[in-house]
C-alpha cells in the first residue's frame, strides 16, 4: 500500500492502521483460517449434496458456497480484534492522542479491515466456487435435472462476487459493533448473535408475514440471498436488495460506533 504524503491526516491514519493490523500476531493466521474453513466447509457441502431428479430444488451456488457461513465468523473475529485489541491493551489512548479525529481512525480501520477481508475472501470464495463447479455436475447438477449446460453463469458470478462483498460487510458490521461495545469478547458474541440468531428466530415464527420480515431484516439471511441462483421470485428479497440490507446493518453499526467512540472516554 502506497502512502501519499498529504496534509490531511487520513492517509497517515490508514498507514498506521495498516501497520498495526499487519503486525498483529493473529492477523495472518485468521486470514488463512478464513480461507481454509470457507473452502473446507464448501467442499464438504459440494461433495455431500446430490440432486437426484429434475426440480430437486437445490441451488448450486448455495451448496457450493456454504462455507461462507463459517468463514464469516473468522472474518468477524479479525475485525473485532482490529478495534478490540486496542481497547484491551490501552493502546487506543495512544492512537487517539496521535490522531485526535477519532472517526478518521475508525474509517482508516474500516478501509484496512475491508481490504484484508477482501484479500482473504476472494481466494476463499473463488476456491469454493471452483471446487463446486468441478464436483457438482457429477452429483446430478446437470442439464437433465434442469440446470444449464454450464453451472458457471452470470448468476453464479453474482453469487461469487456477492459472497466476497458479504464477507467484507460482515467485517464492517463487526468493526462497528466493537467500536460501540469496546470489548472484544462481548463484540464477537453480539456480532455472531446478530448473524446466527435471526435464522433461529425466523424458524419459530409461523406467521408468514412475520417470518418473511424476519428473513428480510436478518443480516445473515438477507445478505446471503445474494447467493441465490434459482427460484429468485420466491425469495423475500432480490439478491442485491439482500446485500443492501446487510450494508445498512454494517454502515449503521459503523456510524453508531463512530458516535460512541467520539463521545466516550477511551
Amino acid at each position: 500500500m502506497s502512502v501519499c504524503l498529504d496534509f490531511t491526516d487520513f492517509p497517515d491514519a490508514l498507514h498506521a492502521e495498516w501497520t498495526k493490523l499487519r503486525t498483529l500476531a493473529g492477523t495472518a493466521w485468521l486470514l488463512a483460517a478464513a480461507v481454509v474453513l470457507t473452502v473446507g466447509l464448501s467442499a464438504a457441502s459440494a461433495a455431500g449434496v446430490t440432486c437426484d431428479g429434475a426440480h430437486c430444488g437445490e441451488d448450486p451456488a448455495k451448496v457450493g458456497l456454504l462455507g461462507v457461513t463459517l468463514g464469516q465468523a473468522v472474518v468477524a473475529v479479525l475485525a473485532v480484534l482490529a478495534v478490540g485489541e486496542e481497547y484491551g491493551t490501552g493502546m487506543i489512548r495512544v492512537t487517539f492522542a496521535a490522531m485526535p479525529r477519532r472517526e478518521a481512525v475508525l474509517a482508516a480501520k474500516a478501509v484496512v479491515v475491508a481490504g484484508l477481508t477482501a484479500a482473504a475472501g476472494v481466494p476463499a470464495v473463488l476456491g469454493s466456487a471452483l471446487i463446486a463447479l468441478a464436483v457438482l455436475p457429477g452429483n446430478g447438477f446437470t442439464a437433465a435435472h434442469g440446470y444449464g449446460p454450464h453451472l458457471a453463469t452470470a448468476a453464479t458470478a453474482r453469487a461469487v462476487l456477492g459472497s466476497v462483498l458479504y464477507l467484507v460487510l460482515v467485517a464492517l458490521l463487526a468493526l462497528g459493533v466493537t467500536a460501540m461495545l469496546r470489548d472484544s469478547a462481548a463484540a464477537v458474541g453480539t456480532v455472531l448473535g446478530l448473524l446466527y440468531l435471526f435464522p433461529i428466530v425466523a424458524a419459530v415464527i409461523s406467521n408468514p408475514d412475520w417470518h418473511r420480515h424476519a428473513e428480510q431484516i436478518g443480516p445473515m439471511q438477507a445478505g446471503l440471498t445474494v447467493q441465490t441462483t434459482i427460484d429468485l421470485a420466491q425469495q423475500p428479497l432480490s439478491p442485491w436488495q439482500g446485500i443492501g440490507v446487510l450494508a445498512v446493518w454494517a454502515f449503521g453499526a459503523l456510524a453508531v460506533g463512530a458516535v460512541v467512540m467520539r463521545s466516550r472516554d477511551a
Partner: peptide
C-alpha cells in the same frame, strides 16, 4: 484470547444447529 474463544465456542455449538435445523 477472549474474542477467539468466544467465536470458536459459538461456532461449534450454534452453527451446526443452524445448518441442521434452520432448513
Amino acid at each position: 484470547r477472549g474474542a477467539a474463544a468466544v467465536a470458536a465456542v459459538i461456532v461449534v455449538i450454534v452453527l451446526p444447529y443452524i445448518l441442521a435445523v434452520a432448513s
